[in-house]
Amino acid sequence: MKNYIFISIFLCGTAFAKAQTPITLDTIYANDQKNVALFFPEPIRQGITGSDNFVFTYNREKEQYFGLLQAKPGMESNLLVVNRNGAVFSYIVRYKKQLDRLNYFIPKSKSIGNEKPIVADSTKVVVFKKELGNEVYYYQKFCSYLIDRKQRIGRIKKRNEGIVLSIENIVFDKEELYFVIQIENKSTLDYDLNFLKLSVETRQKGKKKSLQSLYQEPIFKYNLPTKVVENETVKLVYVLPKFSISNDRRAVLEINEKNGERHLKLKISHRFINNPN
């Protein structure tokens, strides 16, 4: 329920006129044996489930009209889908061992609103604007959502002298990769951050093997601290333009202490970069 409320507020920002009356959401059933296909009136730009026991897959490279839903046994959750034109669709999703329906053809009338918030009254139409601009506002909200979401891509962690650096999640959305990073200070000394950077390393072949490192510049940083005090854990997000790497390359997340020697390099396999959540 918490995930449902947050996702709806985060992406819907949606038509306030429809928010005046309660919306009854339809239920879609799925299981882990068959694919349930959802066909939408416009290509899918984004699809999010509120729980990890539900998986909604769709073509992130080339927008298409359908997505596939699967589920594992567990509590009910919700599915939020945004079409290319900004139309928002929301459903309750439940696990069911025996499925009566495998295909859903969803009409435009099932949209609960549009992600571009517009308020209409008797005298004028007011467009909801943010001082930071729509793009930065979107990054902020989506990063905040990812930090709260309990989803992991795998065990990617490095320790050194009480400092633990880990990648909690890597998420692909639109044309960006979101790296959810955690810094944990288990030592008795505060950790003053000098820099935190992400690079891609390439192994050079030949007799004299070497590493070539290429720095990846984030387009947005969320919740980056200057200090991690003792016994504190900080989560942050780096947003980078989408990229992929071959199996002879790897990403490296590097953290450096200001006026200190606690330096960590976390190696990230190509399979995590090429298969984000």
Rank of each mutant, 00 (worst) to 15 (best):
N3V: 10
Y4T: 05
Y4E: 15
F6S: 04
I7S: 11
I7G: 10
S8V: 11
I9L: 13
F10D: 11
G13I: 15
A17R: 13
A17S: 09
A17D: 14
K18F: 11
T21V: 15
P22N: 02
I23A: 00
I23Y: 04
L25P: 12
L25A: 08
D26T: 04
T27K: 11
Y29D: 00
K34A: 09
N35Y: 13
V36D: 05
L38Q: 12
P41V: 10
I44V: 13
I44M: 05
S51W: 02
D52T: 09
N53M: 07
F54E: 03
F56Y: 10
K62A: 05
L69T: 00
K72F: 08
N78G: 10
N78Q: 14
N78K: 09
L79G: 04
V81P: 00
N85K: 15
V88E: 09
R94P: 10
K96A: 15
K97R: 15
I106C: 09
I106M: 05
I112W: 08
G113N: 03
G113Y: 01
N114M: 06
N114Y: 11
I118E: 02
V119R: 00
A120K: 12
D121L: 01
K124V: 09
K124F: 06
V126S: 15
V126Q: 15
K130G: 08
E131Q: 08
E135P: 03
E135T: 10
Y138F: 14
Y139I: 04
K141E: 11
C143L: 10
S144G: 11
K150P: 03
G154M: 07
R159A: 07
N160P: 02
E161G: 07
F172K: 14
D173C: 07
K174Y: 13
E176N: 12
V180C: 03
Q182W: 01
I183K: 00
T188V: 11
D190F: 00
D190R: 00
Y191H: 01
L196M: 05
L196C: 04
L198A: 10
R203Y: 08
K205A: 12
K205T: 06
G206P: 03
K207M: 13
K208M: 14
S210K: 12
L214Y: 11
L214A: 13
E217P: 06
K221G: 05
P225A: 10
V228S: 03
V234I: 15
L236T: 03
V237P: 10
V237D: 02
V239T: 02
V239Y: 00
V239C: 00
L240T: 14
F243V: 06
S246L: 14
R250P: 02
A251V: 01
V252N: 00
L253R: 02
E254S: 15
I255T: 06
I255R: 07
G260K: 01
H263P: 00
H263C: 09
I268L: 01
S269Y: 09
H270F: 13
F272H: 14
N275Q: 12
P276R: 05
N277M: 10
